[in-house]
Simulated scan of single mutants.
Amino acid sequence: MGRWLPPLAFVLAVARVAAAPVVFTDRPPDLLAYALVAAMCLALPVRDDHPAITLATVGVLFLVYHVLGYPGGAPAPPLWVALFAVGAASRRRAGFVVAGLLLAVDIQGRAATTGLGLLDARLDGSTGVFLGALLLGEVVRGRRERLATAAADREQRLISERVRIARELHDVTAHTLAVVAVQAGVAADLREDDPDGSGRALEAVRQAAGDAMRELRAAVGVLRDGSPESGPPPPTPALDRLPDLAAATGAVLISEGTPRRLPRAVEAAAYRIVQEAVANAIRHSGAGRIEVRLGYRPDGLAIQVGDDGRDAGGPPGNGLHGMVERATGLGGWLRAGPGPAGGFQVRGWIPG
């Protein structure tokens, strides 16, 4: 619509000039009058980038038209468009200054021409139209800003959701691979001496793979269309699943204090932190013993996961970043590094 405003303003202004009544004091419209109208409209295409300059140019030509004695008010449509552009612009201080000067000169000129006082109500019509164009631009600017803010909020929520899903995919995949590695090793060691034990290990592999597939399908469904795929979503991980995790990975689970139900977000974050820390210990440290210690306190939950393996070293990866984000996102903290007696240790605190 914006690109059609200059030609529409030109057609309307030309029609108004041609139809304007010519009183005995007016100069009949001639080629110069229409040239001034055309020049006013030719300034409009740059109104979005330079609203103040456009309004100043159109305003000067509008005043020249009247100084030359042509019928008053007729070529106003280009001026309406320029005023609207000033109101709709993001930077409007210079444009408002130009608009104020233009309105003052217009009122003074019409008062001098008609012999009316500056505050005479009969001068309000043209001024009201000019102010209406400015206010309409202000309304449009406000709507654009609201839409831009809403779009930015949606984009931020989308980015946050993608980061959350990426973190979930990483944690689920890392944990599943760790379980598969441990249980596959057990199955291989027991294949001849303990077929039943080997079968149980392979069943644990199958169970871990099935759980991972359900969580991955749910996450992929959110990425695809914003909602989980059909079927019941996987349960939110909670601390009551830690015994199964410990059994599948060979970790030792120790609780201190009186276990109690914590907020769902706290339990989910704590479970994922432990899950990732155990998976890292299995994959990177070559640990023979992994110890998970949960400390239930009146004001929150202390988490400690340590192993007796070698320090993996190197820069922190996505898994460690994800653990830190989970803890700090709930007002807690998390630190990871070499343990006091060797190996690697993850320590954290989540209020709850």
Results as ranks from 00 to 15, higher is better:
L31A: 04
V81H: 11
A13H: 04
E155D: 15
L216R: 15
L320S: 07
R146G: 12
G250Y: 01
G199Q: 09
G306S: 13
E325R: 14
G300A: 08
W4L: 14
D193Y: 06
R272M: 12
L131K: 01
E215A: 15
F24E: 09
V182P: 00
R347V: 14
A281W: 01
D48T: 09
P315T: 14
L131A: 06
V205R: 03
D307N: 06
R206A: 08
A270D: 03
E215V: 15
A336I: 03
P6M: 12
A204D: 02
A187Y: 01
D308C: 09
L320A: 06
S255Y: 08
N280E: 04
R162Y: 07
P195S: 09
R289D: 07
I254L: 15
P232E: 09
G339S: 08
A76M: 11
R191H: 08
A208T: 01
R217G: 11
G231R: 07
D106L: 07
G221Y: 02
G309Q: 06
D153H: 15
L190E: 07
A82I: 13
L177N: 09
R206F: 00
A74V: 05
Q304F: 05
L334I: 04
T54A: 12
V222Y: 05
W333D: 04
A188G: 09
L55W: 01
D211S: 06
L102Q: 04
E291H: 07
D211W: 03
A88C: 04
P263L: 13
I159Y: 14
A184P: 02
I165W: 03
L102P: 00
R27Y: 01
P298D: 05
A184Q: 06
D244N: 07
R110P: 00
V86P: 04
H321A: 10
L68C: 11
L61Y: 00
A174T: 13
V324K: 11
A19C: 10
R92N: 02
G226W: 00
G132E: 11
L245R: 00
L136D: 05
R143F: 00
L190S: 10
V58G: 09
D196W: 12
H175T: 13
D307G: 07
A265D: 12
A166V: 15
G306P: 10
V129H: 02
D48F: 06
G250P: 00
G226A: 05
T236Q: 11
R91A: 08
V305S: 07
R92V: 06
R3Y: 13
